[in-house]
Design a protein around this nucleic acid. Structure first.
Lengths: 235, 235
DNA sequence: CGCTATCCAATACAGTTGACCTGGAAACGG
DNA sequence: CCGTTTCCAGGTCAACTGTATTGGATAGCG
């Protein structure tokens, strides 16, 4: 347990007050070039609020997270929260983008962490296992992602956000499969976009069942390995 | 400044009033042999309410469905709805069980509809494709199921409900794989519970992406066939 | 110093929510 | 007929929702 949620609404923050730095990018407003009398880092504050939102979403679900709850969890007032996110949807969308980015970073790290010249299979395994809820962090990310998923089904804006990264991921998988063919590790007929999408869908389904406690994380990993066995041949 | 949303609450039922019939099954109550002055079919009424709930859940999501909304959609008063479901959770749980049952029935029908003596692959294909959102009905079912999924992640009672049918399904798949081995259509090493769970997970992932509009239904079906090709060998 | 913009706590507001309650209509057994 | 029970429309209620507003603290700039 690394994180404890003190129910006290007392603000004990005031230490992050230092990290103001530059952050010149004005994400949605066009300020009139007037000097910047601001001192706080908007981006950092929003990330803190996002983290508070996730903490609630993991335990109570996304819909059970009211603005007041999030503000309390973040240890700030409702007024302050509304200063950084003018509407609830704005907060939700920001938090979704952020968690997707974190997930992508995690997968990227996993790949770069592979020593030497990893085989295509090793790269794929690293990438796919990074999409499974194997530790607390990725579990949280997927849990929150699932909460967004249901909303995305009904909300076109969220849906577009959710669909965004998939083609890129698929193409990356195809390139790895292609590389495996060139190395003689894979049947040429299986280096297609269809196989790539099949892999992605399978891992997604496995993750779903892990979150439902149908599978243990290790079970999901074993199933993933068997899936790769089927693909590359049990060497 | 009251914004009235144009919501057609007009529902012209009043003819369902006739289908009361017998229905001797007292689903949860044990009447003490006292004469039954009741005239309506509780089970049928609850199913109607469930259907109304699903209609809302498909378009607006499960959490966007208040008791008043459901009552309006069902064309009944709030008081009447609460007569049949004392709490909201009771209604939700009933509707979940019902939709799971309908999905199971649909898969069963698909299997029984196969002519002659279907091969194991044909049986598996029928079953798996029955779990995909290929028509409006199954799409609705999966959409509602997805809405429940997110709740099940946080609610133990719902989670138990969601986990319920999986072992049975897995065992059925294993039996079909075993049968395929005996017929010489499958490598004996692949007739395991792991392969069965892999199939289930894959279809689940594919269904997820169809609901997200990442795949067209036909695409998902093609991917399923390729998955079976990989399993049985491309005949 | 003033001026102005940012930052944010507190409160108000208008609406919705689920649960509960009351009372009476309808159907049955007697 | 009466009494009992089911059935159900309507209303009430406290709690909660997202958003808007007010007022003041703080900080940078001329």
């Amino acid at each position: 347990m690394q994180k404890r949620e003190a129910r006290s609404k007392k603000r004990e923050r005031s230490k992050k007050r230092e990290e103001r730095e530059r952050s010149k990018k004005r994400e949605e407003r066009e300020r009139k070039s007037s000097a910047v009398p601001k001192k706080v880092d908007h981006e950092a504050r929003r990330q803190e609020i996002s983290a508070a939102l996730w903490r609630i979403a993991v335990t109570r679900g996304l819909d059970g997270a009211s603005l007041r709850d999030v503000a309390a969890e973040a240890g700030i007032s409702l007024g302050r929260l509304q200063h950084y996110f003018r509407t609830k949807d704005e907060m939700l969308l920001f938090a979704l983008r952020r968690i997707n980015q974190l997930a992508a970073d995690r997968v990227r790290e996993r790949i770069e962490a592979l020593a030497g010249e990893p085989t295509p299979r090793e790269v794929l395994r690293a990438c796919l296992s990074g999409m499974l809820p194997l530790d607390e962090k990725s579990r949280t990310g997927l849990l929150v992602g699932a909460a967004y998923y249901v909303r995305a089904v009904h909300d076109p804006a969220l849906r577009a956000e959710a669909q965004q990264g998939i083609p890129e991921l698929r193409d990356f998988f195809v390139s790895q499969l292609q590389r495996a063919v060139e190395r003689g590790e894979l049947d040429p007929g299986r280096a297609t976009a269809e196989e790539a999408m099949l892999l992605i869908g399978t891992v997604d389904g496995l993750a779903t069942y892990v979150l439902l406690d149908v599978h243990e994380p290790e079970t999901a990993l074993r199933l993933l390995d068997r899936c790769l066995d089927n693909l590359f041949g049990k060497g």
